[in-house]
């Protein structure tokens, strides 16, 4: 699930939050994200998550590990729209991953974990 940021709040800066097993985890201020690019976040248990925002302000979170190389680099890929769906292309060998489902668009058998994310 992705949520558009609420634009009515003006008092405090919006933060990005991830839904983990034990509740919402605050990552950073939403303003640190550039549309079209990602950032990586470190979870308390050592997992890495890649967070993205697009032109419309929608936010996405997937595992940061590129399953093809093993390197934690998906947050550094370029994002785009393919048939109306958002994706990120791995910066190493350019395989594309759907940002909502985590499915690899270039190799059906491969999928990365996705996270529920919100701006709050």
């Amino acid at each position: 699930m992705t949520l558009a940021p609420e634009t009515t709040r003006t008092t405090t800066a919006l933060t990005l939050q991830l839904l983990l097993e034990d509740g919402w985890f605050t990552v950073c201020e939403l303003s640190l994200l550039t549309p079209g690019r990602g950032v990586a976040a470190l979870l308390p248990d050592g997992r890495q998550v890649a967070l993205f925002t697009d032109r419309a302000g929608r936010t996405y979170a997937i595992d940061n590990r590129d399953p093809f190389s093993g390197a934690a680099v998906l947050s550094r890929g370029l994002t785009g729209t393919h048939r109306g769906r958002p994706f990120v292309a791995s910066p190493l060998l350019k395989q594309r991953f759907d940002l909502e489902s985590g499915r690899c668009l270039d190799d059906e058998g491969v999928r990365v974990a996705t996270y529920e994310v919100r701006a709050a």
């Binding site: 549309p35 785009g80 393919h82």
Partner: peptide
């Protein structure tokens, strides 16, 4: 493609 986020080729 207009209004979308482009892609890793054209960007």
């Amino acid at each position: 493609a207009r209004g979308g986020d482009g892609c890793e080729v054209c960007k």
